[in-house]
Amino acid sequence: MKRNILGLLGASTLALALALPSIAHAADYTLRASHAEAADSPLDKGYHVFKAYVEGASAGKIEVIISPASQLGSITDVLEQVKAGAIQVAQADEQTLDTFYKPMMILAAPYLFSNDEEARDFLASDLFARINEDMANETGLRMLSAGSYGFRNFTNNKKPIQSKDDMSGIRMRVPPSPMSLIMVEAMGGSPTPIPWEELYSALQTGVVDGQENPIGIINDYSFAEVQKHLTLDGHQIGLTSIIVSEQFLQSLPVELREIVRTGAQMASATEYGERNYQARVTGVNDLKEKGMEIAFPSPEEIATFRDAVTAPIQEFLNKELDPAFVKSVYGEIDAIRAKRRALVE
């Protein structure tokens, strides 16, 4: 018992010693980090992993202050603040980053990725590194990391949707994104843009029949109370990225830059792990228990959705972006798929 007590005392002393640098002197750098989700959400937990790692690994040279739940403004607002240097780190998602750097819109293309691993490989590719570098040079915003918070899936109150033909006659709420409008229209549905703040009541009162979001969001915002059917088609990936001020990052010594990058990657991995488990297990089970009927389309049925949207989405992207760039992105993802298939053949 005495040895155990001494061991505990030793561990406590070591923990205190590791914490002392941040207590003993003021930090050399203050890093203010903003995100839009509630405290203790998977995203917020990731930011706290970021804080713990960066402050500890920098021996207290960097202090991290987290502002959750849109305390500093909307996602777009805080990205503007990062550009202006008012804060140093902020959340972005696949729906907002293209406001600052248009080529990023391609990450929101329907059925661009078949699964999270393809997205992870693409974000780690040399091609995406060049895209990120160009964004940093052009806008002063650099993506430190990104992680999936789940694929978007359709819900509705009218009927089960198993394939593209079932979308006919469905008034589907979409965010104010051209690709979301094109996607639902190409499937035969009626796309209806409605602000996020009005979505629940629009579903409740029948202004629209359905909506589309990842499992975690469907659960978090109690859409099962006003929706009957869920289709796990995974048409768009939800990506939460951690964006840093390029000016701030370059102001740090090289060793501290690497600590900030590593901490951001840990943060994204934390959110992804919890959201992935929720999307595959707990979230789906919760929605079943709340009375939702869940459709699991086969690969052939998912192909009917994908085939309906491919041509109009490609046409849109080629008008908005350099066609050579669009081709290079799809080519990179095709190469990633081929490489992953080769591993199991």
Rank of each mutant, 00 (worst) to 15 (best):
residue 205 T to F: 14
residue 181 L to C: 01
residue 207 V to Q: 08
residue 200 Y to V: 14
residue 202 A to D: 10
residue 196 W to P: 05
residue 192 T to D: 07
residue 209 D to H: 11
residue 189 G to K: 02
residue 207 V to K: 06
residue 186 A to T: 07
residue 183 M to C: 14
residue 205 T to A: 05
residue 174 V to W: 00
residue 193 P to I: 10
residue 196 W to V: 12
residue 178 P to K: 02
residue 174 V to R: 02
residue 203 L to V: 03
residue 199 L to N: 06
residue 174 V to F: 06
residue 176 P to G: 01
residue 187 M to I: 15
residue 202 A to G: 09
residue 195 P to R: 04
residue 181 L to Y: 11
residue 184 V to C: 06
residue 207 V to S: 01
residue 191 P to C: 07
residue 185 E to S: 01
residue 187 M to Q: 14
residue 204 Q to V: 00
residue 194 I to L: 10
residue 208 V to P: 00
residue 198 E to D: 08
residue 182 I to F: 03
residue 174 V to A: 01
residue 201 S to V: 05
residue 183 M to L: 15
residue 195 P to K: 14
residue 174 V to P: 01
residue 191 P to A: 14
residue 206 G to E: 06
residue 184 V to W: 01
residue 207 V to T: 14
residue 201 S to G: 13
residue 184 V to P: 05
residue 184 V to Q: 04
residue 180 S to L: 11
residue 195 P to V: 02
residue 206 G to P: 11
residue 180 S to H: 13
residue 177 S to R: 06
residue 192 T to F: 02
residue 174 V to Y: 03
residue 176 P to C: 04
residue 203 L to K: 07
residue 196 W to R: 07
residue 203 L to P: 05
residue 190 S to Q: 15
residue 194 I to W: 03
residue 193 P to F: 11
residue 189 G to S: 07
residue 208 V to H: 06
residue 208 V to G: 00
residue 175 P to W: 08
residue 202 A to L: 07
residue 196 W to I: 07
residue 193 P to G: 10
residue 188 G to E: 02
residue 191 P to S: 13
residue 201 S to F: 12
residue 181 L to T: 08
residue 193 P to V: 12
residue 197 E to Q: 10
residue 197 E to P: 02
residue 201 S to H: 11
residue 209 D to P: 04
residue 182 I to M: 02
residue 178 P to Q: 12
residue 180 S to C: 08
residue 181 L to P: 00
residue 185 E to H: 05
residue 180 S to P: 05
residue 186 A to Y: 01
residue 197 E to H: 13
residue 192 T to H: 03
residue 207 V to M: 09
residue 200 Y to R: 03
residue 201 S to Y: 10
residue 206 G to L: 05
residue 190 S to A: 03
residue 184 V to D: 01
residue 191 P to Q: 08
